[in-house]
């Protein structure tokens, strides 16, 4: 049976892993390659690297980091952050990234999704959506959560699926870093409306939050950062807990 996936997320700044709360107040959480290796050994099902300063820094640094990670990691990994062109994607895929996550650039120019899908396959395109509940509906935000756009989350994920996105990485900005649980309502609705896998992100604080995610929504993966980085929950104990609750994990 296909297993639910547990995905640690490494937010990268200057080659270091960092973690913020509600997208601000950023703290250092360790060396990216070391953390990646540790998580892989602990049973992480995939890894996601989000370069949160990508737009303002030299891209070569990131390609070098991806090469170092790829040389050491034998599980799939996704790279995102400031990816705006087929050239960016190509550099990262050939450096060893398995999937590319796009966010702001796809909102500004949705054709990017179909271009990447055509060139590298849908399985390579992860659409990352940052969403926030504003006056009665879930709205899409870009530029690392700084800029609202007049786009409803449900409409955007459906459009992205039709353009060839292979997976949705849905982050609730309201829940990110708060540790009160995943945004079950919007995650549930998104996972019902699309037929591609949905990764839920933002809000994981306890093992029960993952159980709720997998029992109350159709998301097939849960992503978290700080609870893993700061050792609040270890991946082996999380997986053991989920198994004893009859949730299929590796």
């Amino acid at each position: 049976m296909l297993k639910n996936r547990i995905i640690p997320c490494l937010d990268i700044k200057d080659g270091r892993t960092v973690k913020g709360v509600n997208f601000v107040d950023i703290k250092d959480a360790g060396d990216a390659v070391e953390l990646a290796e540790k998580y892989m050994e602990q049973g992480a099902d995939e890894l996601v690297f989000l370069d949160i300063t990508a737009s303002s820094e030299k891209r070569k640094t990131r390609v070098e980091l991806v090469k170092r990670i790829a040389a050491r990691i034998s599980i799939p990994f996704t790279v995102g952050g400031g990816i705006a062109s087929i050239q960016d994607v190509s550099d990262l895929v050939f450096a060893g990234a398995d999937k590319i996550s796009v966010n702001t650039s796809a909102v500004l120019r949705p054709e990017l999704i179909s271009e990447i899908a055509r060139e590298f396959g849908s399985q390579c395109v992860v659409l990352a959506v940052d969403t926030k509940y504003v006056s009665g509906s879930w709205q899409v935000y870009i530029h690392g959560g700084k800029t609202p756009v007049p786009l409803k989350t449900i409409d955007w994920v459906r459009q992205a699926e039709s353009m060839g996105a292979g997976e949705i990485l849905l982050t609730s900005m309201d829940h990110d870093g708060i540790k009160n649980g995943f945004a079950l309502d919007i995650t549930g609705r998104v996972s019902e409306k699309v037929n591609i896998p949905v990764i839920a992100s933002g809000g994981a604080g306890t093992m029960k939050h993952f159980r709720d995610l997998f029992t109350r929504t159709q998301a097939t993966a849960g992503l978290a950062a700080s609870i893993f980085h700061y050792g609040k929950i270890s991946i082996p104990e999380l997986k053991h807990y989920l198994k004893t609750n009859n949730i299929q994990v590796r």
Binding site: M1, L2, K3, N4, R5, D45, S122, Q123, G166, E167, N195, I196, P197, T220, A221, R250
Partner: peptide, 13 residues
């Protein structure tokens, strides 16, 4: 067939 999420993505036995 479209009776499940496509792609089949993840770990399976």
């Amino acid at each position: 067939p479209p009776q499940g999420r496509i792609p089949h993505m993840g770990w399976n036995d």
